[in-house]
Amino acid sequence: MAQRIVIAESSYLMKRGISAVISDIVQAEIVFVNGMDELNHYLETNLVDYVFVDEELLNNREEREFFFQLQEKTIYIALSENPKNFPGSNNFFALIDKKSPKENLIPLLEETLENKPYAKNNKDSILSERETEVLKQVALGYTNQQIAERLFISKHTVISHRKNITSKLGIKSVSGLTVYAVLNNLIPKDQI
């Protein structure tokens, strides 16, 4: 499956360049956007595996936060002229130095592009036993804290199971998960 990639970069040479390099490594559908507004709106309606963003577009804090809220599974990669001075790189999976030589750049890109978030997810969308257990507890109305105590796991683990459940089923709300649980006979209807 081709990787869905968006490149937000203002320099024409840079974006043609990065897209040529990416195409050498993976099969990719590449879309170019100009600026953060276009990026945001593209991400609102399209599932994307990777977003390459020019750091110069990231100067506005408000926009930066907004765009990271949009897609959880998407991997963000910053393109920087001067990575040492790059602010707040936590949200980025990788930071690519625009000046780095080929022998550093190619392995970094290969490693990054092998994560394939959506492709991986599609193959494995059945809930694990533990996730099913957590889902039942959610459907029965227990809070994360209560579930942690009942299943002898940490609250953090509960939260991470819930994230996986939501991404596999496409259902986020407790009431939606409850409907799913009853429809699939995980819990009896009279218990909700």
């Binding site: 496409g170 259902i171 009431s175 939606g176 409907v179 429809l183």
Partner: peptide
């Protein structure tokens, strides 16, 4: 967030799990 995500839930319940 709630209004948008529950609409998505409803659509997914119907698309993926409708009896």
């Amino acid at each position: 967030d709630n209004v948008i995500s529950k609409m998505l839930d409803l659509k997914n319940i119907i698309i993926k799990y409708l009896p």
